[in-house]
């Protein structure tokens, strides 16, 4: 067993896990954070996307021990007690998601995009979301949700 300590969504969390435990298994089974989903389990679908040290990764391809000592952000840590993140707000208003399984990963991938590139083109959004598959929507409302969230975050539109 290996002791793994992470700062998850701002709080220090520890667990003792076998070395072959993925970060996704530790988040879901040990820390009861089930926002990140187990989809393909081979790094194609992006449903398990979380941010480690600010960078998006497939949590199914990373061992928990590799993230030891680092900051992890999951979808559970994105909203504050006061408000949703603008992406969560626009995705809800536009019904950007249907079944929602891909949502946590898509929203976190979009968040890292907007953190680095506050005013992306549609092509840049597509590129940033290439590692997140959605089998319900056809992506149109997802792209619109990211565009609208960028507008809100840039102060171009009221967060109505």
């Amino acid at each position: 067993m290996t002791d793994v300590t992470l700062t998850v969504n701002g709080k220090e969390r520890s667990a003792s896990v076998p070395p072959e435990t993925t970060l996704l298994e530790m988040l879901r089974s040990k820390l009861n954070l089930t926002g990140a989903k187990l989809g393909c389990d081979v790094g194609d679908c992006g449903a398990c996307t979380v941010l480690v040290a600010g960078k998006s990764v497939n949590a199914c391809l990373m061992l928990a021990v590799q993230a030891n000592g680092r900051d992890v952000l999951t979808i559970e840590g994105l909203a504050t007690a006061e408000a949703f993140h603008p992406l969560q707000k626009t995705f809800e208003e536009l019904a950007s998601l249907q079944c929602g399984f891909c949502g946590p990963g898509i929203i976190l991938s979009a968040k890292t995009l907007l953190d680095e590139n506050p005013d992306p083109t549609v092509q840049e959004i597509k590129d940033a979301l290439a590692g997140n598959l959605c089998r319900c929507t056809g992506y149109t409302k997802i792209l619109e949700g990211v565009v609208d969230a960028a507008r809100i975050m840039n102060g171009k539109q009221d967060a109505a």
Binding site: G43, T49, S56, V57, N58, L61, T112, A130, G131
Partner: peptide, 9 residues
Amino acid sequence: VGAVQTRNL
């Protein structure tokens, strides 16, 4: 190579 997540790792 891959997508953002795979390029980050």
